[in-house]
């Protein structure tokens, strides 16, 4: 069966195996907005292959990229996992913000100084518990993190060295209110448009710039063809929140839950590692395609952080609308 939990035992699956006794069978359907070239798609294909092997074919899985299970609409897939018509979702965390608004907080500009800080803070015991609990209340089981990207700022007009260089630029920003507040604080005109209009809009100057991951839209949607400058800021971290439909998770026998958890803990760090390597490769690639990349110095980064970061007054105003204990918890975890 596709999409719904299938607990019927198969008559011919009685052969002895490593997980003898369990008769739970299921084919997991996984959705992600990403294209096939993203590391997460490959990793999940590998994970499902090992899952199938480990359970003698009782548990299998299939990856559907580009939100195709939701007719191309990523918001629809978020609902579908909540409802259980899709089993697992690998979503850029702000996408879950409609159900758990605090999933937007990690993307706050300049919240994390580097990968280590991001890893440490996001995997903090209290932070994980918060997300697990809030996800549970909304019908999701929060499996943990994978990685989408560090987002970078690109534009067509000039090299952005300091935040004031962004004054008056028409920037397309998609990540939600916290990030938008940062851009506005830096004086950018934030323009609103869907990703499928972005390439042409940048090409023709309807927008001057945008922010996305080097391995994400910048290469996947070929934005490097229509963007001249990149400021390598590592300004906003975009983790993947991996969620399973809660009801399905609760139906899975404890042994199988353990297998899934073990596999996730094995493959998630691999994906994150691969993603960071692919980021390096893609950075070299866009340079070779003619993008002018300015790597921000620590001093410059401090100036940007003061304008767009979590302590900037405009950004703080927006952060105040989120669960205060949680925001404090996450910021504390970065220290």
């Amino acid at each position: 069966g596709c999409g719904s939990a299938n607990t019927d035992s198969q008559p011919d699956s009685s052969s002895p195996s490593a997980t003898e006794g369990s008769s739970f069978t299921h084919e997991f359907q996984l959705t992600t907005p990403l294209g096939d070239s993203h590391t997460a798609v490959q990793i999940w294909t590998d994970l499902f292959a090992e899952l199938e092997e480990k359970t003698d074919g009782r548990l299998t899985g299939k990856v559907f990229s580009n939100s195709q299970l939701g007719g191309g609409n990523m918001n629809t897939t978020v609902d579908m996992v909540q409802k259980g018509t899709i089993d697992i979702g690998v979503f850029g965390s702000p996408l879950l913000g409609g159900y758990v608004p605090e999933f937007r907080v990690p993307t706050t500009a300049f919240l994390f100084d580097d990968f280590e800080t991001a890893d440490k803070a996001l995997n903090d015991e209290a932070v994980m518990n918060f997300y697990r609990e809030k996800s549970g209340e909304s019908g999701y089981y929060f499996m943990g993190w994978m990685e989408n990207s560090w987002n970078e700022i690109t534009n067509n007009k000039k090299e952005l060295i300091l935040p004031e260089d962004m004054q008056g630029l028409k920037m397309r920003v998609a990540a939600g209110d916290i990030v938008i507040a940062g851009f506005q604080a830096a004086g950018a005109n934030v323009v609103d448009m869907s990703l499928n209009e972005l390439y042409t809009a940048l090409q023709q100057g309807v927008a001057d710039g945008q922010e996305n991951g080097v391995s994400g839209a910048i290469t996947a949607n070929k934005l490097y063809e229509v963007q001249k400058y990149m400021t390598y800021t590592q300004y906003s971290y975009s983790p993947f929140a991996v969620v399973m439909n809660k009801k399905l998770w609760d139906e899975i026998p404890a042994d199988d839950q353990a297998i899934l958890t073990t596999l996730f803990e094995k493959y998630a760090p691999m994906q994150i590692q691969q993603n960071r390597e692919s980021m390096e490769e893609n950075l070299e690639f866009v340079k070779s395609e003619g993008m002018i990349v300015h790597v921000m110095t620590p001093e410059e980064r401090e100036q940007w952080k003061a304008v767009m970061g979590p302590e900037a007054p405009d950004v703080q105003k927006v952060l105040d609308t989120y669960d205060q204990d949680f925001v404090k918890m996450l910021i504390d975890a970065t220290h």
């Binding site: 069966g1 596709c2 999409g3 719904s4 939701g70 007719g71 191309g72 609409n73 918001n75 629809t76 609902d79 579908m80 409802k83 259980g84 018509t85 869907s194 499928n196 209009e197």
Partner: peptide
Amino acid sequence: ATGMAPAMFADIMEASVSSTA
């Protein structure tokens, strides 16, 4: 007939006509 969740129907239908493109 294929045993898929019929609830998907309303979702996909809505998704097909909410694309701002």
